[in-house]
Design a protein around this nucleic acid. Structure first.
Lengths: 119, 119
DNA sequence: TGATGTAGTCATTTATTTCAGACTAATATT
DNA sequence: AATATTAGTCTGAAATAAATGACTACATCA
């Protein structure tokens, strides 16, 4: 075997996807947005231990990767809302498989809780 | 909405799975093992920029999470081989979806290369 | 007049990861 | 007797990531 693997893995779609969703808060943010918690302040409240800076960074990265969209309303005080793009919504099968694996192998059935925000 | 989300997410199967596979080198290591590159030294050679310590850490975590198994042969010099467990093999659907998303949205078709180690 | 609310930015400090390199065990080979 | 081999461990240093707290803009409300 050659050592071409590293070169290949630069273009590996698995690795590439992990880079997009792998950030500490990214799937959580996607989850919040898909549940209409899509403003900076609200998100910050839900993600108890996140700093503003971290939240900003994660949102910007998701935006740059085309997963979410940022809509600025010309109001004062400022209002910004985030939405999933079509690309972002295409992550659904990935997330479902992550969930399946977690439910089957990692989380005791009774304790599992997903997709319920207790609004 | 209450702030129960953080409590819930402690048991979120999506997050739990990400914790298992999210480590920088873990999917690569799983990939190598599934291609019979399953000894410490060989893996270290393939993963060009990994340190021994890092490799050890990742392998131990995967082992503790039940994804891989460690077989020690009582020989000198020492021989240790790693194998995927049934649980580890159950990650296949997850990895396939990660790949699908990457191929469709992240990697230009011509450049994509997965599952080919050029042995 | 002064406080309030939103969505941030920026500089500095602190915490967490990761790396580099020396070291080990025990046997076979030269 | 010295060297090679494998799969690591250990310590201290360097690099990266993340948190903290101050600061901004501008209209509206009290």
């Amino acid at each position: 075997m050659e050592k071409t693997i590293m070169k290949n893995l630069l273009h590996c779609p698995v690795t590439a996807t992990m880079e997009v969703i792998g950030g500490k808060w990214k799937l959580l943010i996607i989850y919040l947005i898909s549940n209409d918690i899509n403003r900076f302040g609200k998100m910050g409240m839900m993600l108890k231990n996140i700093s503003k800076q971290m939240l900003t960074t994660q949102l910007r990265e998701l935006e740059n990767d085309g997963i979410i969209e940022r809509k600025i309303y010309a109001e004062i005080p400022p209002r910004v809302e985030y939405f999933l793009t079509a690309k972002g919504n295409s992550l659904t099968p990935v997330i479902e498989r992550l969930r399946d694996f977690g439910m089957e192998f990692l989380i005791p059935r009774e304790e599992a809780s997903v997709d319920q925000l207790h609004v």
